Amino acid sequence: MRSLLLALIDQWRAPPPAGSQAGSQPNRRTGWLGQWTYAHRGLHSADVPENSPAAFARAIDAGLGIECDVQRSADSRAMVFHDWDLDRLTPHTGPVAALKAEEIERISLPGDGGTIPTLERFLEQVGGRVPVLIEIKSRKDRRILPICLAVHRALDGYRGQCAVMSFDPRVSQWFARHSGHVVRGLVVTEEGTKNLAGRLRRHFALWIARPEFLAYDIRDLPSRFAAAQRRRGLPVLSWTVRTAEHLQTVSRYADAAIAEGEAAQARKSALAGSPQA
């Protein structure tokens, strides 16, 4: 009875994309999501840093979609960078949000990675050649409006396949309300909470977010929650897919992989050897 009630509320509060249902043809709005493998933070390696123009170029050349991370600068521009602080990947220290976009754009990434790009520059580099997943970084103690607006502005006029996603359900909710033409997703990790309290938290996040797809932690698959949403017509992507075993899990329980390392290279090799390559 409890499961049926939750399913009914899911359908009411977070309906799948129009026309999507289990067993139907892929929805035109979201069907492309499951047709690609996405390079996690670009096709990076020990010599090519994550979220760098060089990693993005390698992904494009390999025929892989791209997942990237964005957060805002001090002047509310969307910058393609994962960490809150600059320390791990650059010679600089301190928070990204303390600097203006023009200052951040001058910061070099390791090796020949290039400099930290704005979201606009990243999209210009991609140019619609491969699809893009944009993970919007947020914190519960920060307003989401500045970064959501920054991403919205950067996407204005972009014609390539793209989607935004976030762990923060408020982000997907904002795009549902204010930028409805942008495909939106909820990033989910169960963190071992497969009990009733954990299930309820996931449903509450779903109802707030109203997502059109899920990006699910590979460590949590198979998942009762993910399977239920997938049956309703929400594509399920999975991160971070690193091994051949992970790829097998994705093939059984999800629609597409957000991959790096061994798994990304395996997919790159498969694409290079296909008749379409």
Rank of each mutant, 00 (worst) to 15 (best):
D10C: 02
P16S: 12
N27Q: 12
T30I: 10
W32F: 04
Q35M: 12
T37D: 13
H40L: 06
H40T: 11
V48G: 01
V48R: 00
P53K: 09
I66P: 00
E67M: 04
D69I: 11
D69C: 05
A74G: 09
A78C: 08
F81Y: 15
W84C: 10
W84G: 14
T90M: 11
H92P: 00
T93V: 14
G94Y: 11
E105Y: 03
S108G: 10
L109N: 02
G113H: 04
G113Q: 04
E120V: 05
Q125M: 10
G128S: 02
V132D: 00
R139C: 05
K140N: 13
R142C: 09
L145M: 12
C148F: 05
L155N: 04
C162T: 01
V164A: 01
S166I: 05
D168R: 06
Q173D: 10
G180L: 08
G185F: 12
T189P: 06
N195G: 13
L196F: 04
A197P: 07
A197Y: 10
H203S: 11
W207C: 06
Y216R: 07
D217E: 11
D217C: 04
I218H: 09
Q229H: 08
W239P: 10
V241C: 02
T243N: 09
A244K: 13
A244W: 07
A256P: 13
I258F: 07
A263N: 06
G273P: 12
